[in-house]
Design a protein around this nucleic acid. Structure first.
Lengths: 112, 112
DNA sequence: AGTTATGCCTAAAATTCTTAGGTAAATATT
DNA sequence: AATATTTACCTAAGAATTTTAGGCATAACT
């Protein structure tokens, strides 16, 4: 259960990257996927991801399609071309950020 | 330069760690120090750090002493015992966070 | 029949940060 | 000598993002 507040600013990176990897996902699925793949470290909340996904759609980075499964509807998200670009950019920004943080944090602590 | 929005949630970690390393610093000095040590990647803003430092003081994690240099005053911050604890905790939380992110982000991208 | 899981959503409040200032002294520049 | 830049502190309005706390409905499990 590490660091809920560190997710701040990383949520969009995670969402875009999930879609880049999986091609097509729906919101609920993203929550499950992140929980499993992070070994429970990250627990996305629906109150956070749905507004974030809607903003990505408004910004033209993702598009949606509604698919009826049984009698319920899923809303699948997938990347647009600019979304794919943004995904790559976000991930490399994150890497730069981690490298810069490594310069700042105590080397002794980092070695541990 | 890189990733201003990623600093969200990391500012306190950076500040506490700076103090853990340097013992005693003043606000303006922290801004310079972070700029230099991150090779310009991180540019802390005073509008962000002063409220953050004041909150740390209110929470008992840092204490302050005013030192007159010439005719101007500097306000030095240093860690209290709970501040030292918090510093260690924040840094290890950050490391866990980075490890969890590594699990999530595309291995192909990470290899680049 | 009732609880849990699936699946979407929103809105108020809290938190954190940016932006855009203000104040004042010291130093550098023209 | 006047001006600009750097040093050094600060605040407050607004933006952005997230938490909290719900609502709604179907499906599956007990």
């Amino acid at each position: 259960m590490a660091s809920p507040e560190l997710l701040r600013g990383t949520l969009v990176t995670i969402l875009l990257n999930l879609l880049a990897e999986n091609g097509r996902m729906y919101g609920y699925e993203m929550v499950q996927s992140v929980r499993e793949r992070s070994n429970g470290a990250f627990e996305l909340t629906e109150g956070a991801i749905y507004p974030a996904l809607h903003k990505l759609e408004a910004d033209g980075l993702v598009l949606t399609e509604r698919v009826v499964v049984g009698k319920r509807e899923r809303k699948y998200y997938s990347l647009t071309p600019s979304g794919s670009e943004a995904s790559v950019n976000k991930v490399s920004e994150f890497k730069e950020y981690v490298q810069a943080m490594a310069l700042l944090l105590n080397p002794i602590n980092l070695a541990k």
